[in-house]
Amino acid sequence: MKTLVFVLLVGASAVMSGQARASAELATSKNCMGCHALDKKVLGPAFRDVAAKYKGQKDAEAKMIASITKGSTGVWGPMAMPPNGVSATEAQVLAKWVLAR
């Protein structure tokens, strides 16, 4: 029984870290990392700053998805974020990933 629990925990951990890696790879492949970084401002805010700004907001994911797919302006200063060519599913994955930082 202990072995089964251990195997299940290891498997769940591998899946979760694979999802995190997949999201980082998605962010890189969609050129998010050209303007953002995890922990420092580049052209746009650090993903950790974005997560902190939206922490506790019930509609944070929807706001992030809208910013990713439609672009935004004036949220973080005068620099506009252009819309990204991502699918609805990709936008949701990216939003969840950024908000988890």
Rank of each mutant, 00 (worst) to 15 (best):
A12V: 02
A100N: 13
V98L: 05
V42R: 14
S23D: 14
T69I: 04
L4G: 00
T69F: 01
T3G: 04
E61F: 05
T69Q: 12
P82D: 14
E25T: 11
L94W: 01
L38R: 09
A20N: 08
L38E: 08
T73Q: 14
L8D: 00
G85I: 07
A60L: 05
A27S: 15
K58V: 13
M64S: 03
P83I: 03
K96V: 10
T69K: 08
T89A: 08
W76G: 15
I65A: 14
L94D: 00
L9M: 10
V75F: 11
L4K: 00
V86E: 04
D59F: 05
E61S: 04
M81Q: 07
G77A: 08
M1Q: 05
C32N: 02
A22R: 10
V15D: 00
Q19T: 09
I65Q: 10
A91S: 01
M81T: 11
S29N: 14
M16K: 06
P82E: 05
K41E: 13
V7S: 04
M79D: 13
M33P: 02
M33R: 08
D49V: 04
G44N: 04
S29A: 12
D49N: 04
F47D: 01
A20M: 07
K96H: 15
V86L: 04
C32I: 03
C32K: 02
L8T: 00
S13E: 07
T89Y: 06
K55V: 09
S17W: 03
D59R: 04
K53L: 14
K58I: 05
M1A: 12
H36V: 07
V10W: 01
P45H: 04
M33H: 13
E25L: 12
A100P: 13
A20I: 09
M81W: 09
T28V: 12
A62N: 01
D59A: 08
W76P: 12
A91D: 02
M16Q: 06
A95N: 05
V42I: 11
V7Q: 00
A95E: 04
G18T: 02
K40V: 13
L99H: 15
R48G: 11
P45S: 06
I68L: 09
L8I: 00
K58P: 03
K55N: 08
G34Q: 15
V15C: 00
G85Q: 10
C32W: 01
S13W: 06
R48W: 15
A46D: 14
P78N: 14
L43R: 05
A24F: 06
L8S: 01
K40R: 07
V42L: 12
M16V: 15
L38I: 07
A62M: 02
C35L: 10
S29D: 09
M79L: 13
G71Q: 04
K2L: 05
S23P: 13
V93E: 12
V93W: 10
K96S: 06
L94C: 00
D49L: 05
R101C: 06
R21T: 13
D59G: 14
T69E: 10
A27V: 10
A80L: 10
D59K: 06
K2P: 01
S23H: 12
N84S: 08
G85W: 07
L43Q: 15
Q19S: 07
A46R: 10
L99K: 11
K53A: 12
A80R: 15
P45E: 03
T89D: 11
